[in-house]
Write a protein that binds this DNA or RNA. Structure first.
Lengths: 240, 240
DNA sequence: ACAAAAGTGTTAGAAATACACCCATGA
DNA sequence: TCATGGGTGTATTTCTAACACTTTTGT
């Protein structure tokens, strides 16, 4: 009755990780996969695939992520549904796009090869479909959300120095931040607390290690976090 | 090949308008439609319908809006894609949900009757599917976005007094705002300008009429806003 | 004149910003 | 000792909230 024939429903994911660029400074990178069939044969594209009837949208995103890149992101959130009639030359294709953040150590798990490669987010080639547009939008979301939420910690492990946390912000926002003011903003926000440990070995005063408190004050948690399924919203997943 | 059988793709829209509540004060209302078939026969639900193969997602939302309520909203933005496996007891149903704002005079165009009715946003009955959750999320988005964007103008006509604009904010945010400070915030933001006209007839000093300057786009068209024009996104305009 | 809402002025406190300067370590 | 980044102190500016006060109309 409501069966939709000729209309494909897919998911794709924009995966962000911080890696060193040519100058050695950390910047935003993402893995892309080379298409092995038409349309856009041999063009680079976002990892993704069709949604199966028995899996949720986020589930489909996670499955495709694992199958193509072996990644299990610490942060995964829906970005937007793209459904223009002409966005695929082949058939009508609606894509639910997610965006993900992974830690550097996770990023190393990506199976590199002829068909999977990392690209600097601001030096992308011409991608398949409308994927350049999608990445631009995801980058805008990443940078916007970095300013008012605490997603930065999705790029880090459970313990980190304030310098490491600040470098995440600086890499994503592409501007230097005052270490003194950054420290105070983080301390007064109450989202981090010192573990009591310090890191020795540097040729300078040993920095303290911090952890996230989980005292969630996420302004944008929204009703989705209280979903009946018990599924925690990606935003909150790391807060425990 | 990629044909999806048994997976329905629908659009629904949460339509917000300001109407007087029991006390006469303006508050947020939305129109719902009564379902005329299973599942959820006779339950109230968001207006919506299936996406046709030859129409965009937003186009499908606008078409369904017109067919069920005769509304042509001034503001329409994608909210979220809901796709849990069990959200419809019938078949697998993925819904792309939009949210819309309409002016009071537009709201009057809604064809009321046995199967279409306005409800106060905070006094909803048990709705069909997961529509209570969806409305909660849309309300959260409305209130959040009211604080940092200029969507309030979508509830008003081309000319308005500062008191009218303030009442929109107060109705949505459900808290009183200082008229003096509100005036200054609006004036310094540069998004409104006086028309030179005043409104006479009140038993008090005639208020000036203002218009929106157009310095910032009303609709957040998502990634599409910079596709053709290369325009800066509204939210980023003040950060440079 | 009075009530009511429009509109202006002023001040206190909070928050962001800039930057001087001390601290603790490795070499 | 010096270089290096970690960390603290503090003055300046900017933003926000609170509220006293003046203006202009209708009755």
């Amino acid at each position: 009755m409501t069966t939709t024939i000729g209309l494909g429903l897919a998911v794709s994911t924009v995966i962000f990780a911080l890696r060193a660029d040519a100058t050695g400074a950390p910047s935003v990178w993402l893995p892309l996969v080379r298409r092995t069939r038409d349309p856009y044969l041999d063009r680079w594209a976002l990892p993704g695939g069709m949604v199966r009837v028995d899996e949720s949208l986020e589930g489909a995103a996670r499955r495709n992520l694992g199958e193509t890149t072996r990644l299990e992101p610490t942060y995964l959130e829906q970005l937007y549904a793209f459904g223009d009639v002409d966005r695929s030359p082949d058939q009508r294709l609606v894509s639910i796009v997610y965006w993900a953040l992974v830690r550097p150590d996770e990023a190393e798990r990506v199976t590199l090869g002829e068909n999977v490669r990392w690209f600097a987010a601001d030096e992308l080639p011409d991608l398949a479909f409308d994927h350049n547009l999608i990445v631009d939008y995801a980058l805008w979301r990443l940078r916007t959300k970095m300013e008012y939420s605490r997603i930065a910690h999705a790029f880090l492990g459970p313990r980190f120095t304030l310098a490491e946390l600040r470098e995440v912000y600086e890499a994503v926002l592409r501007k230097p931040l005052d270490p003194a003011n950054f420290r105070r903003q983080m301390e007064t926000s109450g989202v981090i607390e010192p573990t009591g440990e310090v890191v020795t070995g540097g040729r300078h005063r040993p920095p303290r290690l911090y952890r996230y408190t989980g005292a969630v004050d996420l302004v944008d948690a929204g009703p989705l976090s209280r979903r009946a399924t018990g599924a925690v919203r990606p935003d909150l997943r790391n807060s425990a």
